[in-house]
Amino acid sequence: MEIVIVNNKETPLQKILQLQNKSVDCGIKTSVYAINSSYGKGSITNYYFDGLLININNGRFKEDVIFTSKQNLNALELSILIEGEKIIRVSSFKSDLVLEKNESYFIYDDNQTKQIIFHKEKPIKEVKIRMYDDFIRKHKMQTLLSKDKILCLKKTNRNFTRQLTTKMEEIVTEILINSQKGLLKRIFLESKTLELLHLELDFQTKKKYNSDNILKKAYKVENIIQTNLHEQISIEQLARRVLLNQNILKNEFKKLFGDTIFNYTKKLRMNKAKKLLTHTQKPIYEIADIVGYKNPTHFTAAFKKTEQKTPKKYRKTQIGL
C-alpha cells in the first residue's frame, strides 16, 4: 500500500495505521497496527513467513478510505470477508469489483495498480492471504501463476466472488481466535491456508459447471421459499444455502420467475393466507404466524396493501357474510 485518500485528500499511510508491536518468533514476522482514532478504530495484524502473508483486518473508518496498491511481486491472493464491503478498482476494468459480507475471492494478482475502497462507518472483518513465490514453489503451485489461467486478475469478471461455505467459515473463525505462538502458530497458519486453498481449488475445478447449476439452484431457492413460508429467510441466507453469490441469485431468480425474491415470497404468503381465510376457521393471528408474520398487525397491514381490505373483511366476503 502506498497512498491513502480520505475525503479526497492524500494522507501518508503511517498517519492512519500506527505500528503497535513488531516481533519475530520461529521465523514468523508479526506486525500489529492500530487505526488512528482520528480516522477510525480497530486493528490490522500481519503474519509473514516463507512467502506467506496473512493479513487480518478488524475495524471501521470514519470516512470513505481509498488505498492505492502497487505490488512489486506476483501473488495468489485469497480474501475472505466476514463483515462489511470491499471494492476493488482496477484501471483496466470497466466496472468495480465488489466483495460483500460472507463472500470470498481467489485471484492471481499480476502487479496491476489497483485501489481498495472501504466505506465509512462500515465494520470490516477480513482475512486476506497472499502467497508469494517461495510458498508457491514449496507447494508446487507454479501452474496457477500462468497469465492464461482463469485466476488471472485480468480475466476476472463480475462473478469473481463466491459465497462462503460452512467449512470456510469454520477455518476462518479458527484463524481469528487462534492464540498459539511460535512453531505451533507457524504450523497452524500454514495448515489452515492449505485447507482454504484446497477448498478454493476444488471450487475452481468445478466452476465451469456453475452456469449449468445456476438454474437448479434458483429452482431450489424457490422450493425453499415454498416450503418455509412460516420463516423469514433473508436473501443472504438463501444464497448461502445454495452456495450462490447474492447478486447472481437475485438476477437469475428474477429472470426465471419474473419477479424479485421479496415480491415473489410476499405473493406466495398472501395466496396461502387467502386460502386459510377462506377454507379454515383459524384465527387471524394464527394465520399470520403460518405465513411468516410474527406480528399480526404487520400481517394485517401487508394483506390490506395487497388486497385492499383487511383479512377479517376478506374472510367475510368469501363466506358470504
Rank of each mutant, 00 (worst) to 15 (best):
K138Q: 03
Y219S: 04
D64Q: 09
L13C: 04
L151V: 01
N58C: 10
Y132T: 01
R162E: 10
I56R: 01
V32G: 01
L151Y: 01
G27I: 13
N74Y: 03
M1K: 06
Y108V: 04
D96K: 09
Q318N: 06
N213C: 10
S23Y: 05
S23W: 05
D110K: 11
K140C: 02
Q204V: 15
T173W: 08
N245T: 11
F188G: 15
R162A: 13
D134K: 08
I124C: 08
K15E: 15
D64G: 09
N55I: 01
G59C: 01
I248H: 02
I35L: 02
E222C: 15
I82Q: 09
K41L: 00
Q71V: 09
N223G: 12
N74I: 02
L145V: 01
I16R: 09
D109I: 06
R315C: 02
D64T: 09
L145T: 00
T143P: 00
K309E: 06
I319Q: 15
E200G: 11
K305M: 11
A288D: 01
I117S: 09
N21W: 00
N159M: 08
K250H: 04
Q237P: 02
G27C: 11
Q226Y: 13
R240S: 13
V4T: 14
L215C: 09
L99F: 01
M270S: 08
E77A: 05
Q14A: 15
R162D: 09
Y108Q: 00
V172A: 02
N58T: 10
E286M: 15
D50W: 04
T193H: 12
H198S: 11
F299S: 02
Q246G: 11
I35E: 03
Q204N: 05
L189A: 08
D148C: 05
Q318E: 13
L201D: 03
T166R: 11
L164W: 04
I224Y: 06
E190G: 01
M141H: 08
G51F: 01
G27A: 03
I150Q: 04
I177D: 00
G320N: 12
R241L: 10
E170Q: 15
N111H: 06
Q115P: 06
D25Q: 10
Q318W: 04
K70P: 08
Q180L: 14
N102H: 13
S38D: 11
G84H: 03
K101E: 15
A239P: 02
I56V: 02
T193A: 00
D109E: 14
T297R: 12
L276K: 14
L201K: 14
K9A: 05
L197Y: 13
Y132S: 00
S43I: 03
E174A: 14
F61Y: 15
